[in-house]
Amino acid sequence: MTELYKTSKGTTFQCDVTDRICLQFGDISASFKIKDFFIFRRTVKTINIHEMIFNLSDDYDFEWIESPKSGIAQKLTLCEIVQLRDLLDGTKFSLELNSVLHETLGTLVIR
């Protein structure tokens, strides 16, 4: 397991044995196939946080986050969503940086 990104609220790892991304964030502990990880990130990114900020109705205090294949179905607060986004963005950056290194240096060079 290689650590991909860490914030004060959570950590992500890459597992080269299972080819999965592991996520630990608050109560959430889940692993994703890479494709599902990006779909999950997209889900979290598309939440309308402005709506959550400005709409005073109780319905907007929390947002449901779901990733059916990873067993995630969780209510998150605005603050948690922003923190989760931060973690997911950082993870994506690490993944892409690794990809660029592979492309530039050649797979065999990187250990």
Binding site: D16, K35, N98, S99, I110
Partner: peptide, 9 residues
């Protein structure tokens, strides 16, 4: 570390 991104797509 494997390049999972490129392996996927």
């Amino acid at each position: 570390m494997k390049d999972l991104v490129r392996l996927r797509t």
